[in-house]
Design a protein around this nucleic acid. Structure first.
Lengths: 106, 106
DNA sequence: GTTTTTTAATTACTTTTAGTAACCTAAATA
DNA sequence: TATTTAGGTTACTAAAAGTAATTAAAAAAC
């Protein structure tokens, strides 16, 4: 028997959100940035298993998504600051609810 | 200068939570299971880009985590039902907050 | 009463993503 | 002068995900 399928396509916004959060390290990086503006190495120190290579890659992605801003502080020495945009700060309930769930577990 | 570092280790529970949610497809699968108990192919149909191979793998992981229960319905023909455990249902605020954030985006 | 379809997978193989380690430049510190 | 620090990049390896073919057991179609 043949059937005409009009597949209930997933909403692209929701799909995209899960795509961003579904990448390794993204959640933990955002969690750290929730508390304060951070320098590159601060994030690395906070998440020891995260390599510099991966952190660079994730920060570029998050910047491209408009979730994070990268700022060059033109002092001597030059510093790079990463902070959340409004869009990034709006992810706070997501990060908070994950942490709350985590704390409930045995 | 040398420094004695007592690294502020990430809480393992939180790390583990982000590890589970940080895998591709996990969020979308859980989102679908939030609404109802599902059969294997129902989930596949709801998420067309998700292959059977990946769905099998994720369901095994989620079962091992105690987030999902797999039930064999011994009727003719045999059916496999997947549903959330309490632990799984407690992830509802996580899934809901991701959806809410997604809907805010342009 | 064979053939085809459906369900819930498994297996083999390819591609993409992540991890490791070495290197880089400019400035700071020992 | 030599080493360290910050914030990366590059080349290579390992792990995760994607694709496609196969499977078994039952149901439906022919």
């Amino acid at each position: 028997m043949e059937e005409t399928l009009i597949p209930t396509a997933l909403c692209p916004k929701v799909e995209h959100a899960f795509e961003i959060l579904g990448k390794k390290w993204t959640g933990l990086i955002l969690r750290h940035l929730m508390t304060k503006t951070c320098r590159f190495n601060e994030i690395q120190d906070a998440i020891p298993e995260l390599s510099g290579r991966m952190l660079t890659e994730r920060m570029k992605e998050l910047e491209a998504e408009g979730i994070v801003i990268r700022t060059v502080i033109p002092e001597r020495p030059i510093k790079i600051q990463y902070s959340l945009t409004d869009k990034g700060r709006q992810l706070e309930p997501v990060i908070r609810s994950i942490e709350e769930w985590a704390e409930l577990q045995d």
